[in-house]
């Protein structure tokens, strides 16, 4: 399996009055089509590692490679371009733009990328929403749908530009068990949508155990990296 995103000796220290180490000397490779769960106690650096893999944050030491390309010397705009076309984010909260409809939110990354003409982008966004069971809610605003539906819209938005990597930070953390299961199932099926990789931060061990692989962090270091073959 070839590497899609790779962390090599990555350390992130916040330059506070007393420096805070978020993650330390992380070596992690995520291959194409892999489903990886990052687990660990609160404050162990799970989200920080996710932001570093997603090029939202910059390592203090070490480097992150995306699709084999070193990113530590890239300008901000180049990293933005990688995020736009290559990475989809799903956060604990949906973070949809309240002024846009469900369809409009999903179309935002597509319109920014400009890969598809407006009509085609609209059709494509509608198809993604249909596949996630949101066909009846496309023209509603985020405050007119349920929490679980909003999180599914956030997943649809992450899938909009057909990125090879989806990074999810506690995607089911704010949902009830039913909605949580729905969202997980959708994420679980994502790799089938074209060799996509998913890295998901979660507290939920049940969800983590149903992924391909689990990476466990404690105090900013990887203490366990195991394949969950039985569940694949």
């Amino acid at each position: 399996m070839t590497a899609l995103v790779e962390a090599r000796g990555v350390t992130r220290i916040l330059p506070e009055t007393v420096p805070v180490t978020l993650v330390e000397d992380i070596d992690l490779t995520v291959g194409h089509g892999e489903l990886v769960a990052i687990t660990g106690p609160s404050g162990s650096g799970k989200s920080s590692l996710l932001y570093l893999l997603g090029l939202l944050d910059t390592p203090t030491e070490g480097e992150v490679l995306f699709d084999g390309q070193p990113t530590h010397e890239l300008e901000k705009d180049a990293k933005s371009a990688i995020r736009l076309a290559g990475i989809g984010f799903v956060f604990q909260f949906h973070f949809l733009l309240p002024e846009f409809t469900v369809l409009g939110n999903v179309m935002i990354p597509m319109r920014r990328l400009g890969r598809w003409p407006r009509t085609e982008a609209e059709q494509r966004a509608a198809a993604i929403l249909e596949s996630l069971g949101l066909g009846d809610h496309m023209h509603k605003r985020p405050d007119q749908i349920s929490g679980g539906q909003r999180q599914r819209v956030a997943v649809a938005r992450a899938l909009a530009n057909d990125p090879p990597l989806i990074l999810a930070d506690e995607p089911t953390g704010s949902l009830d068990s039913h909605a949580s299961e729905q969202v997980f199932q959708i994420l679980r099926e994502v790799p089938a949508r074209g060799d996509k990789s998913i890295v998901a931060v979660t507290h939920d061990l049940d969800i983590a155990n149903r992924m391909d692989r689990r990476v466990h962090l404690v105090d900013g270091r990887i203490v366990l990296d195991e394949q969950m073959h039985a569940n694949v």
């Binding site: 995020r83 076309a85 920014r112």
Partner: peptide, 16 residues
């Protein structure tokens, strides 16, 4: 501020 952060995570540049 939150929307700005999200737009950046989606790949919007600072210039955008």
């Amino acid at each position: 501020a939150r929307d700005i952060a999200i737009l950046k995570s989606l790949g919007f540049r600072e210039a955008d």
